[in-house]
């Protein structure tokens, strides 16, 4: 009955969603979470890349909440973004998705930094 997406099993299946301005790893990150143009859902090594359009970008209200649902439903366990509002944070937390804010540069750079920080900890 539990429909909780459980993508965080092993390191190989862990998915990371990065808020992005475009569909490639070399696109600049979109600092906004809820209203970013798209999410790149990737493996930490950046080998598998799944660009997902963000239909919430133009939503009048509740964009952060819906974007959080979108990434949670895709089995994402970590979100890399610039800023994330309180409603989106609450929704991601309820879904068991962790969030790293303050990211910037290209999607690739953000992933590399995340991997480096992760490896050293």
């Amino acid at each position: 009955m539990a429909r909780t997406p459980d993508g965080a099993g092993g390191k190989n299946t862990m998915k990371i969603a990065v808020s992005s301005t475009g569909p490639s790893l070399d696109a600049a990150m979109d600092e906004r979470f809820g209203r970013c143009s798209c999410f790149l859902i990737v493996s930490p090594e950046g080998t598998e890349v799944d660009p997902v359009n963000n239909p919430c970008a133009t939503q009048g209200h509740g964009a952060g909440i819906q974007a959080a649902r979108l990434v949670a439903e895709r089995g994402v366990s970590v979100v890399l973004t610039g800023r994330c509002g309180p409603n989106a944070s609450d929704t991601l937390a309820a879904a068991g998705v962790s969030v790293v804010t303050g990211c910037g540069g290209t999607v690739r750079e953000a992933l590399e930094k995340y991997s480096a920080d992760h490896a050293s900890s």
Partner: peptide, 18 residues
């Protein structure tokens, strides 16, 4: 219509201000 009530994970979140 306003994402004011959101079933997610094992919870139902309510956002009263929405």
């Amino acid at each position: 219509e306003f994402s004011a009530i959101v079933p997610i994970g094992k919870k139902v979140l309510v956002f009263p201000q929405l």
